[in-house]
Design a protein around this nucleic acid. Structure first.
Lengths: 142, 142
DNA sequence: GAAATCAGTGGGTGATTACCAACTATTGGG
DNA sequence: CCCAATAGTTGGTAATCACCCACTGATTTC
């Protein structure tokens, strides 16, 4: 596919293409190898990185609508990866915790993610990967 | 929004977020300032970079389905930005050409794109922008 | 000159994403 | 004690994207 120079010269355009392709590869391998969706992986990672939290808190961190969080969490409960208990201090909130199975799934998912990451960044040297990461982090504001 | 380190440490994740945000900003400003969609801009740029071409050829370059190309081109015709003539050498094909208005719209669009590009890449120095562009180009295969 | 191929067209589908409105229950401030 | 705000839930909608199939008219291949 010979794209026009005008588009190839636009960093935003190429950045978007590469980002979408990377995400698709990641999502495909993640569901194939662990059965997790990207959002499920993100939620598990959030719970592991920050510890048990209310549903709303996880949703806020990930920028996910509360109503979508419900459905996401329903899935995690059904698969036995997390537990949902009412917070005794504030019975409106849940306290979502990872189960042992959840931590296990997360570990496997991390390995898959690292694997796909290596593949999609294969054209770059280690130094270039670090450069790329620091550059996109500078652009990442919200 | 304090995202979990696991996600922030994943280049693909940050790359995708930045790419999508950039594309959204680009699309919004483009339609606001010129009335063009991103695809319309891409099609105009393709026609300008490579000269008049068949509808199918433009679609192939952009990776767009033929049936979607029809609808895209219909829009460009309706706005008077391109003309559609049968190729006398092969009357199955069209010969799509830019009109003067089309070239004009493209010039204005280019300026908007350069403008938005400057804004979204503002956190980077000129050298860093060049680095970023060459890095993502290395990752851009198809 | 019949058959296979190709450009363009019309009319869809299904997945994804990202929302929104309205409701329950619980809580905290005044 | 009452009222506003909050956490969670249900049941949607709208936009976008990336397809797919069947068809027409024109061309190439055999």
């Amino acid at each position: 596919m010979e794209l026009p120079p005008t588009l190839l010269g636009t960093t935003t355009f190429v950045l978007h293409k590469v980002g979408v392709a990377g995400r698709r590869a990641l999502a495909a391998r993640l569901t194939a190898d662990t059965g997790l969706s990207l959002w499920e992986f993100a939620a598990l990672a959030t719970l592991d990185d920050f510890g048990p939290a209310a549903q709303r808190e996880v949703g806020d961190r990930l920028g996910l609508d509360p109503s979508d969080m419900v459905r996401l969490m329903d899935g995690l409960m059904a698969e036995g990866l997390a537990t949902r208990e009412r917070d005794p201090a504030d019975r409106r909130r849940y306290r979502i915790s990872l189960t042992a199975a959840g931590r296990d799934a997360l570990e496997r998912a991390r390995a898959v993610v690292a694997d796909v990451e290596r593949e999609t960044l294969a054209p770059l040297t280690d130094a270039e990967r670090r450069d790329l990461h620091s550059l996109v982090m500078k652009l990442f504001s919200p």
